[in-house]
Computed example of a mutant assay.
Amino acid sequence: MIRIDENGFYGKFGGAFIPEMLYPNIEELRENYLPIINSEEFQVEFRHLLKDYVGRPTPLFLAERLSEKYKAKIYLKREDLCHTGAHKVNNTVGQIILAKKLGKKRIIAETGAGQHGVATATVCALMGMDCTVYMGAVDMERQKPNVERMRILGAKVVPATSGSQTLKDATNEAMRQWINNPVDTHYIIGSVVGPHPYPEMVAKFQSVISEEIKAQLLEKEGRENPDMVIACVGGGSNAAGAFYHYYNEPSVRLIAVEAAGLGIFSGKSAATTSLGKLGILHGSRTLLMQTEDGQVVEPHSISAGLDYPGIGPVHAHLFDTGRGEFVAVEDEDAMVAGIELSRLEGIIPAIESAHAFSALNQLSYNPSDIIVINLSGRGDKDLETYIKWGNY
């Protein structure tokens, strides 16, 4: 059984390893988040916004040409059709309502690919709350359209200029800011990472993805369970959402796709389950790419959203127990898969999502199998990267 205990652990992964100054913030959240989000008042507002603002349910689309090529029945869960262009908004809608009920006036967030930043800026504009987003300077350069979207929405975008100047460093900056402003500020973490209760809370908000898949497959195929669910994993919120209602359905294969960058052992990779070992990152015990003396190894991926040196504790547990199957896809193969989806189905995916499609080349399955791929975001933000790559 995949479950979380009262201290926020999935098996040996998770918990809250935090500096003393963060304890009041985390404790306030831990004590209040379940009573709030389980209340009828919260659920009514959350479901209303998911339907009328985000645009849920998102379609489950039978990709006939892709299915013909790969000799299986392949459905795409169209999270790219959410307002803001990715699954991230499911979580930010939930957390902004929670922050409001906790009496917070100010929101901070971190972002890699910029989609979570845009989703946070969006809900802050909706609710009239002050918003500051921390983003690695390198990611700001390669995801310029999302930086400008955040600014148009009224958010302040602060560059993180330490370390590799990517997602890890943006998260560090956001946590420092939260320590300094504990009373009026809520930190909207964008993935299933960080100290408890964040990993489980974010997964709960994203679980609407698998909730819908079950209902949609029942309607289309007469069964709730596919044979396989495939999703990319950086921190892993889209995968957690797509897997959530299938954790304890052993007949459903859960395929998590990491970024191998220039090659798993090239020194330019983000394939955490291949390269990582047990460590503490951003407040939780998980698998982490690190040196012999415990220093974080800088990750690399062509996709800003997968450019992270660890994975969420639930995914570390899925890997450790063998419940999840983990594969790694190199930059070049992900780009090829992104163009292939564009040509076969008329959908340009985010490069993060393209990694999930490339995994089809590494997996074995039967022609009768039903495969659901979580198309977690659209490729508008990545056009410059596609253009620079150029092989189309």
Rank of each mutant, 00 (worst) to 15 (best):
A270N: 06
A270W: 04
A271P: 15
T272N: 07
T272Y: 05
T273K: 07
S274P: 04
S274R: 15
L275R: 14
K277R: 15
L278D: 13
G279M: 05
I280T: 14
L281D: 09
H282N: 12
G283D: 08
S284R: 09
R285I: 14
T286C: 09
L287C: 09
L288I: 11
T291H: 03
E292C: 00
E292A: 14
G294R: 00
G294Y: 03
Q295N: 08
V296Y: 04
V296I: 15
E298I: 01
E298N: 06
H300D: 02
I302C: 11
I302K: 05
I302G: 14
S303T: 02
S303V: 03
A304V: 04
G305M: 04
G305L: 02
L306G: 05
L306I: 05
L306M: 08
D307M: 01
D307V: 00
D307N: 07
Y308W: 03
Y308L: 05
Y308H: 04
P309H: 07
P309V: 08
P309L: 03
P309A: 04
P309M: 07
G310P: 01
I311Q: 11
I311K: 09
G312L: 10
G312K: 12
P313S: 09
P313I: 10
V314W: 06
H315L: 10
A316K: 11
H317C: 13
F319I: 10
F319L: 09
F319C: 14
D320C: 10
T321W: 14
T321A: 08
T321P: 10
R323A: 11
R323Y: 13
E325Y: 03
E325N: 02
E325I: 12
F326T: 14
F326P: 06
F326V: 13
V327A: 10
V327I: 13
A328N: 14
E330D: 12
E332N: 11
E332K: 14
E332R: 15
D333F: 00
M335L: 15
M335Y: 04
V336G: 00
G338T: 07
I339T: 03
I339F: 07
E340V: 04
E340M: 05
E340D: 11
L341T: 07
S342Y: 01
E345A: 07
E345W: 01
E345I: 07
G346S: 06
G346R: 05
I347K: 01
I347Q: 00
I347E: 03
P349Y: 06
P349W: 06
A350M: 01
A350I: 02
I351C: 03
I351M: 06
E352C: 00
S353K: 06
